[in-house]
Design a protein around this nucleic acid. Structure first.
Lengths: 196, 196
DNA sequence: AGTGAAACGGACCGCCTGGTCAACTTGTTA
DNA sequence: TAACAAGTTGACCAGGCGGTCCGTTTCACT
């Protein structure tokens, strides 16, 4: 319905610096980062922010969308890797590393803020499920794990680290290591509850 | 310094219903629950809340303190269990179950909001470390795990579950199962980063 | 029953937030 | 270069927050 005529030069410039500023600010303060701070960091007026994105949530969605597409592309690339177990680990590392830059709470809200985001998320999910299935077929991952489990668990290391006062920037790797070991077949116990 | 003369009957009543209301409200909405809502739920005026606790953070600290003491007592009880590995698992289950009722972000803020809370936390930590050490001596837990690792990881299952839309109330058990399997010696890989 | 202190409650304050708007500036096009 | 649409801006708004204050109520003690 909307004819997307090309943006004016200054508008395009502002839009991109706005997105960059929003990414940084959301990374620093989570979804509670204030629009005023984002505008200040981008060097534009607050009103301009709302011209580009009608709502703060839309801005957040746009930032998150970038990361999702990025992750989905990586996942797709990794499905071709020879070592399927290592590929899944590499993906989870990448996801945790990205999340460090931005709290990717893109899994929340089954209800729709943004249709585009919902489909991108679905796409990412199917790529991840493919990675997991391949890793299971290779015997690298226990078979009672679902793709959803991986999706949920890949968010955990950064959260865990957020509790320690002055976390080393690579500390999340430790907890991803532990969690990934929990996904291995060796020494796995029957899980007390089915996957969601 | 403060002589704690006994509370008047109505004050004591209000205080306890305030604490109960605060626990529920914090459980529902996290630390951002509003004082007005808590007061309404407790059936008292907002001013009364601040009479009992000079600051919202003090109220939160009081609620959290209860849980910490509770957990510490449980940990102490479990150090006497015969199966040290099962004892640690049971403790982590209890911690996750409690956390479901209240986001126990009591690990944050090395800086002091509340001295009483800080010492209670230290006490809990030493109890947990004892549990972990015993489990390691029994061979149930890999030896490259620190007490701090367990403290951090026991918070993860609930966070993970918070991402799924309508989580079953026991779903956290699944992820605790996976994480606990990551703590077992079988199939453990060298961790890529030292403990904090 | 009377009295003083303790406790109560809600109107109120200052602050900050997401979002709006009308006056102004700037890029584009002919 | 003229003129119009597109874009920008910061003052402004309503609403919600933590926290204060003081007139009123309630308890406890004699």
């Amino acid at each position: 319905m909307t004819i997307d005529r090309p943006l004016r030069a200054d508008a395009a410039r502002n839009r991109s610096s706005l997105l960059a500023a929003a990414a940084e600010e959301f990374a620093l303060h989570g979804p509670d980062a204030s629009v005023a701070d984002i505008a200040r960091r981008a060097g534009i007026g607050k009103g301009t922010v709302f011209r580009h994105f009608p709502t703060k949530d839309d801005l957040l969605a746009a930032v998150v969308l970038d990361r999702i597409d990025d992750l989905a592309a990586l996942a797709q690339r990794l499905t071709a890797a020879s070592d399927a177990g290592a590929a899944l680990l590499e993906f989870m590392e990448a996801a945790a590393g990205r999340q460090q830059q931005l709290d990717l709470s893109f899994l929340r809200e089954s209800g729709e803020i943004n249709a585009r985001l919902a489909t991108a998320r679905e796409h990412l999910f199917t790529e991840i499920i493919a990675l997991v299935t391949r890793a299971q077929e290779a015997g690298a991952i226990r078979t009672d794990i679902s793709g959803m489990d991986v999706i949920l668990l890949m968010c955990a290391p950064n959260h865990v680290v957020s509790f320690v006062p002055n976390p080393s920037p690579d500390l999340w790797r430790r907890y991803l290591g532990i969690i990934f070991d929990g996904l291995r077949p060796e020494g796995a116990q029957a899980l007390p509850y089915p996957a969601p």
